[in-house]
Computed example of a mutant assay.
Amino acid sequence: MKRLARNPRLKITVVSAERSDERDPMAERDLSRDLAGAGVSLHVFEKRVAPAARTARPPLLKRVLSPMHLAWDVLRLRRLAFRFAREHRPCVIHARSYIAAWAALGVRRRELCRLVFDPRGALPEELAAAQGWAADSRRYLWWRDLERRLLRGADTVIAVSEPMAAHFAERADVSPVVIRNCVDLERFSPGTRTPAPGAPLRLVFLVGVDVPYQASELALTLRRAVAAGWPAGAILRVITPDADAMRARLGSPEVNCDSLARDAIPAALAESDLGVLVRDSTVGSLVACPVKFPEYLAAGLPVLATRGIGEVDAILRDRGVGVSLDPSATSEWPRHLAPLLARLTSQREELRQSARRAAEEIFAWEHSLPLLEHAYGLWR
Rank of each mutant, 00 (worst) to 15 (best):
F168Q: 11
S354E: 12
V312I: 12
E22P: 00
T194I: 14
F45S: 05
L127H: 07
A199M: 03
L80H: 02
R139S: 12
S328V: 09
S161M: 09
A172R: 01
L206R: 09
A359Y: 05
L77F: 11
D258L: 15
M1I: 01
D24Y: 02
A225C: 09
K62I: 00
P200G: 06
A299M: 06
P253M: 04
S368A: 15
A172M: 02
W133T: 03
A165D: 05
D21K: 01
H94L: 09
V49H: 04
V303M: 11
P8L: 05
C91I: 00
R223Y: 02
V157A: 08
C113R: 05
I265G: 08
L378Y: 04
R307P: 02
L260H: 08
H336R: 15
L70C: 00
A134E: 12
L351Q: 08
D173C: 03
R317S: 15
R262C: 04
A71S: 08
R202K: 14
A227I: 04
T55G: 02
T306I: 09
W102H: 15
A81Y: 04
R357E: 13
G121V: 06
A228I: 00
T345I: 07
G310F: 07
S259W: 13
K62D: 03
M68H: 05
L70R: 11
M26D: 15
A358P: 03
V209N: 11
A56S: 12
S189G: 10
T192N: 12
G284C: 06
W230G: 05
P176K: 03
A219N: 06
D184V: 09
W143A: 14
C182F: 03
I93T: 08
R180F: 07
V49S: 10
V287G: 05
F188E: 12
L340Q: 04
E28Q: 13
R148Q: 13
R262Q: 14
E111S: 12
A159W: 07
G308S: 12
R138Q: 03
V276M: 09
R237L: 09
K292D: 11
P119R: 05
R247C: 10
F293T: 13
E217V: 05
R78N: 11
V278C: 10
P195I: 00
P302K: 10
R63T: 04
R380H: 14
R23G: 02
L304G: 11
N181H: 07
